[in-house]
Amino acid sequence: MTKRTAAKYKLDRRMGENVFGRPKSPVNKREYGPGQHGQRRKNKLSDFGTQLRAKQKLKGYYGDLTEKQFKRIYAEAARRKGDTGEMLIGLLERRLDAVVYRAKFVPTIWAARQFVNHAHVLVNGKSVNIPSYRVKEGDVIEVRPKSKQLAMVLEAVQLAERDVPDYIEVDHSKMTAKFLRQPGLADVPYPVVMEPNLVVEYYAKNG
Score class of each variant (00 low, 15 high):
residue 159 L to K: 04
residue 178 K to A: 01
residue 136 K to H: 12
residue 187 D to A: 12
residue 187 D to C: 06
residue 179 F to Q: 00
residue 157 V to L: 12
residue 178 K to Y: 03
residue 162 R to T: 08
residue 177 A to S: 04
residue 143 V to G: 06
residue 134 R to Y: 06
residue 141 I to Y: 10
residue 136 K to W: 03
residue 144 R to S: 11
residue 177 A to G: 03
residue 189 P to C: 07
residue 150 L to I: 09
residue 189 P to W: 01
residue 139 D to L: 04
residue 148 K to V: 10
residue 135 V to G: 08
residue 170 V to D: 06
residue 166 D to L: 12
residue 189 P to H: 03
residue 153 V to C: 07
residue 172 H to S: 06
residue 169 E to K: 09
residue 137 E to H: 10
residue 184 G to Q: 10
residue 142 E to P: 02
residue 174 K to R: 15
residue 172 H to Q: 12
residue 165 P to D: 07
residue 135 V to N: 08
residue 189 P to T: 06
residue 137 E to S: 15
residue 173 S to E: 14
residue 158 Q to C: 04
residue 154 L to T: 14
residue 158 Q to L: 14
residue 185 L to C: 07
residue 169 E to H: 08
residue 146 K to A: 14
residue 163 D to F: 01
residue 175 M to G: 01
residue 148 K to R: 15
residue 176 T to D: 05
residue 138 G to F: 13
residue 187 D to H: 05
residue 134 R to M: 13
residue 147 S to W: 05
residue 184 G to R: 13
residue 134 R to K: 14
residue 188 V to Y: 00
residue 173 S to K: 15
residue 148 K to D: 01
residue 175 M to A: 09
residue 187 D to N: 08
residue 162 R to F: 10
residue 140 V to G: 00
residue 147 S to M: 07
residue 150 L to Y: 10
residue 158 Q to E: 15
residue 168 I to W: 00
residue 136 K to C: 04
residue 159 L to C: 01
residue 137 E to I: 12
residue 147 S to C: 07
residue 181 R to M: 02
residue 175 M to P: 03
residue 141 I to K: 03
residue 171 D to K: 06
residue 177 A to R: 00
residue 178 K to V: 10
residue 159 L to D: 12
residue 155 E to Q: 12
residue 154 L to S: 13
residue 182 Q to R: 11
residue 147 S to V: 05
residue 155 E to N: 12
residue 189 P to V: 07
residue 163 D to C: 01
residue 180 L to E: 07
residue 178 K to G: 00
residue 134 R to L: 11
residue 161 E to R: 14
residue 146 K to R: 14
residue 134 R to N: 08
residue 140 V to R: 06
residue 163 D to H: 11
residue 180 L to K: 13
residue 141 I to D: 05
residue 164 V to R: 05
residue 152 M to V: 15
residue 156 A to Q: 02
residue 141 I to Q: 03
residue 170 V to M: 09
residue 142 E to A: 13
residue 166 D to V: 10
residue 156 A to I: 09
residue 151 A to S: 11
residue 179 F to S: 00
residue 155 E to L: 03
residue 153 V to P: 02
residue 172 H to N: 09
residue 149 Q to H: 13
residue 185 L to Q: 06
residue 137 E to R: 13
residue 140 V to M: 06
residue 142 E to K: 10
residue 174 K to H: 08
residue 140 V to W: 01
residue 134 R to H: 11
